[in-house]
Design a protein around this nucleic acid. Structure first.
Lengths: 338, 338
DNA sequence: CAAAAATTGATTGACGTACCTCAAGATGTC
DNA sequence: GACATCTTGAGGTACGTCAATCAATTTTTG
């Protein structure tokens, strides 16, 4: 039993090859009953389109654009590495990647970068976007222009993007809290949350999730109000030191970046609080091994990139997409499994 | 700049298409200097073989056989589900999967199943194998017969298989210990390890890793000798109850299967020990949610299946393989992130 | 019923590689 | 120089789909 081809379909449907082709590729101009005959024939023969042949014949190329913040280090560095790795693998699959670095936290630059894109220059856009209205307006324009727009890492309101690829940040916060409660145990002192910015949706969601589980399962712990470190080491350090002056800390949840400031601040404290952070960067890995971090919650950037590409492909080909295919699982790392 | 083809290579090398083909597909009968010219031309043109076209032309089919224990439930159930899921996706990639169920723990049946395979009936074999000599002999025969043999889930001595796909079980044990120590905290009581069989390499490695970290980082905890539950609920239950009679338990590390017996045994204990288990089966998921399990270490069966297939493909095509491409990362689940 | 419109068939040429054959040229051996 | 052996060229067919054309047929419309 060999694989059936369009010829087999045509023969069993008693129509010509051309008609089968018209049905398969929705070229229109086919009578209802013929469509039906073809579909039935596909059913009985068990025909599946041979993707290798189809792609070869089409010679189609997908041009996808990734807009990511330009920071070389930290999480975005990992993401850029993942993109470069994918680039090689994707040559075989007729996908061309363009990675555009935009200054982090620069709304105007982000909007400008998006504005320069159109359906003529790209077949899909994945962007680590902020909630700024000018950025979202550009995303909406692209989307209505027929260019699929995927929100990466941080979600946006449903109306502004075609899909989201990234972790469920509420779950991430909840998970952090579960481990925090367990690790802190009977220790005394406050629990400090340092977010990057509470205007960033991903950080806010993490804080929310963290708060929920803390209230549900560890009400005896003293959860301090969340502070904003703006992902900069100096601010994070200052905030940590300030909190330590207020009283002893049992735990710290570093929701965003700027981790080196945190580690600096804790260097001299003789009874280090339980510290949980996000994203397994090189420095996070080192901090885990040296004991400066207790646990890291990672969103696999490589998996995110892959999911984004696969989703953009489905969207450009108008294939139905699985609503939660963009959700990437969280990985949890401690010293022993980095 | 379009993608260069073999024609371009032939033209820049000033040889015929046939010669390029001979070089590319190692058909032999080409003078040294011609080979050199072709390789140089490949270099300067930046030629990469178009896999879609190549596969289409070859019409090659990969027939891979998976030998897995026949238990419908638990981890092997997950693996069989993953295999079925892959089967559909693989139709597009000219890969045909054959899944053979062999009675668990039945050495003779396993050896017989392997014996029935040859290079004529399959292009690669992935097997969840035991260390029994008759099984390993069959694996060695297949391998020397030119059929790649991949050890799945549990590793084997290097000489007996072509690759290993599965978790690093020593790391798994170490990770379990790290969380166990943290979760137990100041609690008093023994730490019980229940393995399936200490003759199973994967279980033994986990126990080893667990012991190491316990000794290094939590020497104050009372680690009891590992017992063997043979993956059967009744035995596991009996062992747990016996341990409880000996004295209070602070933690239990369920290295293997038979978890339902464990949960049975603990149902009435009023101060439940910290319980860590392996593999996120349906029942493990439920137990996490209900609080009967504290943590689950999962080896993503779907990822394992994919890795195994990709490796077998590389092996059959004689491509060089990355020695640690078969190592699948561990996933850690608690109630909050299942 | 005739004209217009819709539908269908037949055919052809890509896409890039694999694989095969046959003849011709180059090189080496005695 | 005759012969065998090695190496190369030229050319064709196949893989399964896509895309397009043009003519032939059927159906619809007034």
């Amino acid at each position: 039993m060999v694989r059936p081809t369009i010829h087999d379909v045509a023969r069993t449907a008693r129509v010509s090859l051309a008609t089968v082709d018209r049905v398969l590729n929705k070229r229109g101009g086919v009578a209802e009953k013929s469509v039906k005959k073809v579909l039935e024939a596909i059913e009985v023969t068990g025909y599946v389109r041979d993707l290798t042949a189809a792609n070869l014949s089409r010679g189609r190329e997908y041009r996808f654009t990734f807009l990511v913040p330009d920071s070389q280090t930290g999480f975005m560095g990992l993401m850029r590495t993942a993109l470069e790795t994918q680039r090689a693998a994707l040559r075989d699959h007729r996908v061309k990647l363009r990675v555009v670095a935009v200054p982090a936290f620069d709304v105007a630059a982000q909007a400008a970068a998006l504005a320069s894109l159109s359906h003529r220059s790209t077949d899909g856009v994945a962007v680590v976007a902020t909630e700024a209205p000018e950025v979202q307006a550009e995303m909406a324009r692209l989307s209505s222009d027929g260019v699929p727009v995927v929100a990466l890492v941080a979600d946006l309101p449903r109306a502004k993007r075609d899909a989201y690829v990234g972790p469920d940040n509420v779950v991430a916060g909840r998970t952090a809290a579960a481990f925090m409660g367990r690790f802190v145990g009977a220790r005394r002192g406050g629990i400090l949350m340092i977010a990057g910015s509470l205007a960033a949706r991903d950080h806010m969601e993490r804080v929310m999730g963290f708060r929920m589980v803390m209230a549900e399962r560890f009400p005896q712990l003293n959860l301090l109000p969340a502070v904003q470190g703006f992902d900069t080491p100096e601010t994070v350090k200052a905030l940590t030191l300030a909190a330590l002056r207020e009283g002893p800390l049992a735990g710290i949840y570093a929701v965003g970046a700027g981790r080196s400031g945190l580690i600096d601040a804790l260097r001299d404290s003789f009874d280090r609080p339980v510290t949980i952070a996000h994203d397994l960067t090189t420095s996070a890995r080192a901090a885990l091994l040296s004991g400066e971090l207790d646990l890291v919650i990672d969103q696999n950037p490589a998996a995110e990139v892959q999911a984004a590409i696969s989703l953009m492909r489905d969207l450009t080909d108008q294939r139905p997409i699985n609503p939660n295919s963009g959700s990437v699982p969280l990985s949890i790392f401690v010293r022993e499994n980095v």
